[in-house]
Amino acid sequence: MSETPPVMPPDLRSAITADLKPVKPLLSPGRRALLAAPFVIGILAMPLAYHRMREIGDLGVMLSWVPVALQVLLAFGLLVIALREGIPGWRVSTKQIFAVVLVAYSLQIIVNLLIFMRMPMDGGGAGALAMWMSCFGIESLIGIPILVLVAWMVSRALPSRPLLAGFLAGTGAGFAAEASWRMFCAYSDPGHVLLGHTGGILIMGLTGFLLGYVWSVYQDRAAAG
């Protein structure tokens, strides 16, 4: 025995028929991320205009371009997952998300430790705070435009976990920014890296989380009328 379908309420019908113009479906998250790629790559290359790239001769490709490429790929992965959060019924599990985040943080920390072992460069001393602030600030400058772009793309869809989507967008932007800036910052001591670089990624993730929170409050208020 099947239930009879409810009759469509007239106000629902009139709301639908009043706005039935054709819409263009969103591209898949991967494709949208690819569309954003030229902008993201342009932003990541921005420091070239103002800074000299670090000497990578002693580091070799395996400690310079390879981890940078891997980190940028992981960052793109995080941005794709953030975009996927906006598609109802197509989320990635929380466990998988945190596994990707963990891998990205581990990679960033391990690579920086290996760089320190190969080329120790102390960023401490009297100017430590200034150096830390400088790296932190530059990473934010690189990351924020990427975060804003991805957050805007996510908000055009329908994220059901906006805080998580924001966190992912921020963390992805932070990792991408750090991958770029690492090729310019010559200081490699763990204190500097953890505070100025890893800390920058954390703050970017937190900023995305807060953006998600603001968005969700706005949405809830709109829903409550």
């Binding site: 819409v23 479906p25 598609i87 109802p88 329908l158 059901s160």
Partner: peptide, 21 residues
């Protein structure tokens, strides 16, 4: 949010996802 439906994907999980939201 009908533009968030991606053609070719199953409709019911999308609709139930919106309902849950």
């Amino acid at each position: 949010s009908r533009r968030t439906y991606m053609p070719g994907r199953p409709v019911k999980p999308w609709a139930f996802g919106i309902a849950r939201n």
